[in-house]
Design a protein around this nucleic acid. Structure first.
Lengths: 203, 203
DNA sequence: GTCTATATAGGGATAGAC
DNA sequence: GTCTATCCCTATATAGAC
């Protein structure tokens, strides 16, 4: 059964049954961690959604923290966060708004990020390193972007690129939290655009 | 023993032994929830810090969720969040910076807020209503403040008071998260001041 | 690769003695 | 008001049969 056979679904490689199973587990874990957080979500919840036993799940991911890190990496690949290099042709405002609207459309993406990010600041949380590095990387990336804009004379005088980078990221995270608690009262894209139009000068 | 006696520490009223115990429990619970979150923190942790049994703790707070809500209310009384009416004489920038620096000095205050706020968006979290109402109240309060400034011609043209309110709160929350993960790399007060100086016109 | 059974630990909450 | 003992539930992880 384990030997190769044309047309068999158990063939090796990136499209093997095993890989599909892993994908299904990641999707289920994404939903569970988004709804209950890392500590609040259980492997049993995830296993039930996939339709397998909790012990079978541990065959694919040896521990709960391994599963968490895999989910975080998987999130990056879905959202493009940290994987897609910024398009130098696209304006910063447009790129931010586009990403904000995209995230808004995928259920659970914002919940997962918001919940796990704050949870990660607690003692010995397995996701802490991931978020620390993500913020470092993002701050550097946006700082570079704002410096380029400053060189073009498009940054409002008095605004420091480093501060603008941290501010944009902070605003983005914070407005997502408010949006989760009151989607009707908060205009995520509007707040982001408002800040960027404030900090950037028209061409 | 339960009858009144001059000089006895077991007298009734706001300074009774029981009240002191409750205060000690609240302080311990504040530290535990800040370090581990609501779901990650245990009543046993709290009881150990106070030096009592877990069951004795439940004599003061009948359930874990009751304890959480008491801690959140206690936090308000410490920080003045939601209890102290804004001083109309103090400039908005000064008030925000002063509060930010104050929070920074009290260990655990920012952790507690950040962790519980994000955790509260998860399913059936007992703190959810508290945070939803807090955001509603804060947005209304800052919106009013920005409208007053707009009437004085001190709000930069094109900035909407409602958006500025949500943005200021979001920025504040988000920068606290970054600060918790990298205190040396993030200037909380600087980012807040930077935004307010951008959105407000000089007198 | 999947399962059952189990080890081991911990959680919140209740009953009732003192 | 404080405790011990306990109930009952849930959790992650391991062992081993199939």
């Amino acid at each position: 059964m384990t030997t190769k056979a044309a047309g068999q679904p158990s063939r090796r490689g990136p499209y093997s049954k095993s890989t599909e199973r892993r994908q299904a587990i990641l999707a289920a874990a994404h939903a569970v961690f988004a709804a209950h957080g890392y500590r609040g979500g259980s492997l049993q919840d995830v296993a039930d959604r996939v339709g397998m036993s909790q012990t079978s799940l541990l065959h694919y991911f040896p521990s709960k923290s391994d599963l968490l890190l895999a989910v975080l990496t998987w999130r990056d690949s879905i959202t493009g966060d940290g994987t897609t290099p910024p398009d130098p042709e696209e304006k910063l405002v447009d790129a931010v708004i586009r990403q904000a609207r995209f995230n808004e459309e995928i259920p659970g993406v914002i919940e997962l990020y918001t919940v796990l990010c704050a949870e990660s600041v607690t003692d010995r949380h397995p996701g802490r390193e991931y978020f620390t590095e993500r913020f470092d990387r993002l701050r550097r990336s946006y700082t570079r972007r704002f410096k380029e804009l400053a060189d073009e004379g498009r940054l409002r005088p008095g605004v420091e690129p480093e501060a603008a980078a941290a501010t944009l990221i902070a605003l983005w995270d914070g407005i997502q939290t408010q949006w989760l608690l009151a989607p009707e009262s908060v205009d995520m894209a509007g707040c982001l655009r408002g800040y960027l139009e404030l900090v950037l000068l028209p061409e």
